[in-house]
Design a protein around this nucleic acid. Structure first.
Lengths: 344, 344
DNA sequence: ATTATGCATGAATACGTATGTATTATGCAT
DNA sequence: ATGCATAATACATACGTATTCATGCATAAT
């Protein structure tokens, strides 16, 4: 049962033809007669023959495989992946399966030069780059990928002067809409929880949208109401505690991600501050848990299903040599209870 | 920039040595002098050289890659993957990265003969099989994998007469503990929501645990209080509606999965039935959302992090030819509010 | 001085496939 | 009957690596 795996030569021998004929017959080449083809395919089936992928790829220089590079900051612990990216992972997996491509998944934390590896090593026909964390370090890697001529597409903030092709969320407009929702309801002192530096351009864009909405509402922008927080419940919790300690007044919080918002709500509850009656909260991402927080979280929905589909489709276009533009995905505000809209 | 990718021959030429020497030097073989090794490695680095994975695999018959086969019932729609399996996906990804293996992910719905493909085609050194849905169809596939001598490990219910190696949750005991928790609190009429046929052995085992707990508490087992529900909010919702329509009395519901439990809670709320005051609810899986339902869900925790780690480790053992036993993962009850324990 | 020993390297080759080129056989038009 | 296009197949080879075996060379042992 566990014999040697049959090769195309074995089939050729049994069918009384040459190995190249077998290769052609199995690939339904018109160069082979129908009779031969059927005979060969029947034998292949009987032997449970499978083309050796490595040999095929070596010969044909095509792998029918995409690589997904999940890149996170060093030091990220053993715990589960942040749900938003997990959701992207699922959707990319689905999309590439649908297009007939296998997906090679790889985590990367350390090596500087890893970037070259996948496409360069002919391991995949193209790369989807998904980094979460410090953007500065990723920018370098992306530049390197571009330099070696890799075919890749990146999920992330669409910035000027960035080499490569990007698909990302329209962070600025989404944050603008979310914040405007708060100002429209009369909130005057709105805090922003999230890192707003160049290390997190996607958060920075959200901050810009937040600022724009404040200005449009003729509200003062108080930089003290921006507190750094990375994407996790813990960071959201701690940032809220810091905000409370500052004794600054605030009547709403716009959080750069849902995980932060969850931490915020926990912290506020613990301090007996009612959400949304005393402080309104809005998040970003619409992770599955968002509809089950208490109160349910008003948040910006990122359509991960569509994003995954577009990433795969555009990467395949790149592989085929077609032109592709970077593009922004429109986001949508999901109004639930944490913003207080349902109280009115 | 986008020149031909350099090969070991290019390096050999530049270093004034032969190709085999390059191969050895790059792999730090002791057969090559230190001086030569350094020279070769320096040139390789300068050229941005990467070993061609296909050629290496073809030659060495080893891929340093594991395949994860995610198998779901045909007809499963486009929506996101059920969070429990998404979590397994994340944890397996992490674990295999840690062991230096790449992970090839593949969805499979249709073809009967796909099973052979991965290992048989030398695409991966081993396979992790993760099926959710109708077990009967998977049993066939698993038997086939075994027949062709594939090295694989399966996540799922550990059953007698199953070929291959399994890692699974101790469904029976976990369900027993969860149900006993309910009977200990004095509940007498406990419903079970989940499919209890051979098509879902893991649910069936949970049903058995449920029955055992009832018997131990000298309670009557009423088969009418078991309603079929597959793992989704919608099915949980509908099953609850059916239960309510039956006019049968019940004071608690044990759900075969958290997604079902979420649907249950929604349905109960909609009918103005208070949880847990009037009906206690317990789930299974401890998905991330479980702590945010209202009330927070008492549920059985499956340690996906450990499961992923064990799956990968045991598969690597199998690949090395070591003996491996199937094993059950102990589960743990997470007591939150939906069971009413915190009311007392 | 001669042979043995070990080290560094080169030559040859195999892995299994896919494809360009050469070779037959067949049918058809001249 | 001869030449020529066409179809079907075989032959030869390339893809890039890793490994076995053979070779040369220096040093040590006799």
């Amino acid at each position: 049962m566990k014999d040697e795996k049959p090769t195309s030569f074995d089939i050729a021998h049994l069918a009384g033809v040459s190995q190249p004929t077998v290769s052609r017959a199995l690939r339904n080449s018109p160069l082979v007669s129908e009779e031969t083809r059927e005979r060969v395919q029947a034998i292949a089936k009987k032997l449970n023959y499978q083309v050796d992928i490595n040999a095929r790829n070596l010969r044909s220089k095509e792998t029918k495989t995409l690589a997904l590079l999940l890149c996170e900051d060093p030091g990220t612990d053993d715990s589960l992946i942040n749900p938003f990216f997990l959701s992207m992972l699922g959707s990319i997996t689905r999309a590439s399966a649908k297009m007939g491509y296998d997906l090679l998944i790889s985590f990367q934390q350390q090596s500087l030069n890893w970037n070259a590896e996948y496409e360069h090593a002919n391991r995949a026909d193209g790369i989807i780059f998904l980094g979460y964390g410090d953007y500065i370090t990723y920018a370098e890697k992306i530049a390197n990928l571009d330099k070696i001529g890799a075919r890749f597409i990146t999920w992330g903030p669409v910035l000027p002067d960035q080499p490569g092709h990007f698909i990302g969320c329209d962070n600025l407009n989404s944050a603008y809409i979310a914040t405007k929702h708060l100002t429209d309801m009369g909130h005057k002192k709105i805090a922003f929880l999230g890192i707003a530096t160049e290390h997190r351009p996607e958060f920075n864009q959200r901050y810009q949208g937040y600022v724009k909405a404040l200005l449009d509402a003729k509200l003062m922008v108080n930089p003290k109401l921006q507190i750094d927080a990375d994407t996790s419940e813990e960071m959201g919790y701690e940032a809220t505690m810091e905000l409370l300690k500052s004794k600054l007044q605030f009547d709403a919080i716009f959080c750069a991600s849902d995980l932060i918002a969850i931490g915020v709500i926990n912290a506020l509850k613990e301090n007996n501050i009612r959400v949304p009656a005393e402080v309104a909260v809005v998040g970003f991402d619409n992770i599955p848990t968002a509809s089950y927080t208490n109160p349910p979280l008003t948040t910006v929905q990122q359509d991960t299903l569509l994003a995954g589909k577009l990433l795969v489709e555009n990467l395949l276009k790149l592989i085929k040599g077609e032109e592709v533009d970077s593009l922004l995905m429109p986001a949508k505000l999901i109004v639930r209870d944490s913003c207080g809209a349902h109280l009115k």
